[in-house]
Design a protein around this nucleic acid. Sequence first.
DNA 1: AAAACGTGGAG
DNA 2: TCTCCAAGTTT
Length: 353
Amino acid sequence: MQKKILDWFDLNKRCLPWRDQRTPYRVWISEIMLQQTRVETVIPYYQRWMTQFPDIRSLASADEQTVLKAWEGLGYYSRARSIYKTAGIILHEMNGVFPAERKTIEKLPGIGRYTAGAIASIAFGQPAAALDGNIRRVYSRIGDVALPARSTEGEKLLWRMAEDWLDRDRPGDYNEALMDLGALICTPLNPLCESCPVMSVCLAYRNQTVSQRPVLAAIKPIPHFMVTAAVIRRTGADPTAHYLLAQRPDKGLLANLWEFPGGKVEDGETLEECLRREIREELGAQAVIQAPFGKYKHAYTHFRVTLSAFLCELDREPQPLAAQAIQWVPVSALDQFPMGKIDRQIALRIQSL
DNA sequence: AAAACGTGGAG
DNA sequence: TCTCCAAGTTT
């Protein structure tokens, strides 16, 4: 099976930017960017990143805000903050040398079992197994695994398969081969079994259970929240327009990113009441609402929001009561502040005025 | 063990 | 419009 998969890989592997010059740094950055993220999404981010931060030293000497800005739009922003932390650790505690041992790699921030195995095998040629979404699907089908793939028992079995069946001579290529096989042939929907190099050993194919493998967990209902946000224009003699941004807490959703202040609508509250309450609580000021500034729908990982924005002014200078920091920002500088998708859309609308 | 954590694309 | 999910990790 390993030979069939590697022979297929040698003929069909994808040409991807991180597959040139396999330095540990390039493999590491690509692996983090690819966590839960499509290849096509990652490619332009990866190319910009390597221009902006060509090595660990340039990354470690940047500001976290600059790093988050480079990550803006990729999502799961703790990944960017972990990368930044890891760059500092490698530079200051490891003499600037990326560790080669899987166990050591796995101790670094943002690197779990999969990523440690991928880096160890791909960048260092070590016989370390990797189990990602693609490989999990491929092995669930080859072994016709009836256990839910993400259950404790299922994970145990699948990691065991990944360890036992790893090609010891070409571990990095083998792990990548399984991922390419999962991405190109053994796809979630409509897999191309007739073109698969391991069709003859695939138990799910034999048992006609391919479409039922892997066994997925039940999906939970996703709540939907109504939220408001204030686009606050600074009043006063200054002829240049400035708008107020607040920096989110350093933990949780969109940590350390900037946003237009606001919050969830509570029961029995109108949108305007919600906004005035939030501004009072977060900024210690009275909001004078002037006009609606658009509705924005957005789906996060585990909830959805409909955000109603309003153009406002304040009756006094705001205080950072809830945010880490607040800042009056000229329209031309809104670009430089890392934001999540929905706040970026609001910022773009301001810039189009 | 289960929940939190983003976004964009396909069907 | 809506669902599902795509190279997982952390708490």
